[in-house]
Simulated assay, not measured.
Amino acid sequence: MKIDFTGRHILVTGSTSGIGFAAAKGFLEAGGHVVINGRSQGSVDAALQRLGPLAENATGFAGDLSEEGACQQLLAQHPDFDVVINNMGIFNPQDFFEIPDSEWQRFFDTNVMSGVRISRAYAPGMVERGWGRIVFISSESAINIPSDMIHYGFSKTAQLAISRGLAKRLAGTGVTVNSVLPGPTLSEGVAEMLKPEVESSGKSLEQVAADFVVAHRGSSIIRRASHVDEIANMIIYVSSEQASSTTGAALRVDGGVVDSIF
């Protein structure tokens, strides 16, 4: 199987690091032109520099896409995309009784409404051209709602509902809509969260991450955290020509955390 994105224009939101950066890099390696997005110009410039020669086919867009104004600016600069990866997101462990309304709203705007606005803006062009891919990066937490991140789990479940509904809305158009559900993944954000334990224990980051998975996601079958490239592989595939009959799906890349055969 040869996956080729030559001639395709691709948006990966929140792609200056983590899963988003790995996906963007994969699309570039497969011949696509990718817009790298981050909240600040500095983070976008640093990501482009990290890409090295691949950056020749990449363009940066600095803007917080949880805000409607930034989405409008993106649309003005880039009126069409063939592939949209709704990846930007935030997470933060916090007890339910300590989460204020403002934090619920921040999670909803960032994790949910960014993807709603972006998909609403670019899906019509995909339909007109008869081909397109929209992918929401959800989480196994959409199914296994974490008791210490209920607001995060809620936002990820909302993505599944939107993805499935939009896939049905675009039935027969040649545009597919899917969700990808990573499990615990060694992104920069997770590494930062685990940093105190790494420093105090003297263990490697990979071992601390594996210990975390065993302790907090005991149903994991791989018994470790995934690497960002492992998640990116699924994103690249479901965005490809070869995934033409996969739509409305919630595709787990969770290392077996969700204890279900469906």
Rank of each mutant, 00 (worst) to 15 (best):
M1W: 06
G7N: 01
R8E: 09
I10L: 04
G14R: 07
S15R: 00
S15E: 07
T16K: 04
G18F: 08
G18D: 00
F21T: 00
F27E: 01
G32P: 04
V35N: 04
R39V: 00
S40W: 11
D45K: 13
A47F: 05
Q49N: 13
Q49Y: 02
A55G: 01
E56H: 12
N57G: 15
N57T: 06
A58T: 10
L65S: 01
Q72G: 06
A76N: 05
A76I: 06
A76K: 12
D80M: 11
F81D: 02
V84I: 10
N86F: 10
N87W: 05
F91R: 15
D95L: 14
E98A: 13
P100V: 07
D101R: 14
E103Y: 09
F107P: 06
F108K: 09
D109A: 14
N111P: 01
G115P: 08
R117T: 05
S119F: 06
A121K: 10
G125N: 10
V127Q: 13
V127F: 08
V127L: 13
G130D: 12
W131M: 08
G132T: 02
I134Q: 04
F136R: 14
S141A: 15
N144R: 14
I145V: 15
P146K: 06
D148C: 09
T157V: 04
A158L: 02
Q159L: 01
S163T: 07
G165Y: 03
L166G: 07
L170N: 12
T176K: 15
S179A: 13
T185C: 12
G189R: 11
V198F: 01
S201M: 03
S201I: 01
S204A: 12
S204C: 08
S204H: 04
Q207H: 12
A210G: 13
A210C: 03
D211L: 05
D211A: 09
V213I: 10
V213Y: 07
V214A: 15
G218Q: 14
G218I: 05
R224I: 05
V228K: 08
V228D: 08
D229T: 15
I231Q: 09
I231M: 11
S240F: 00
E241G: 14
T246M: 15
T246K: 13
T247S: 15
G248Y: 07
A250K: 14
V253K: 11
G255P: 01
D259W: 04
S260W: 05
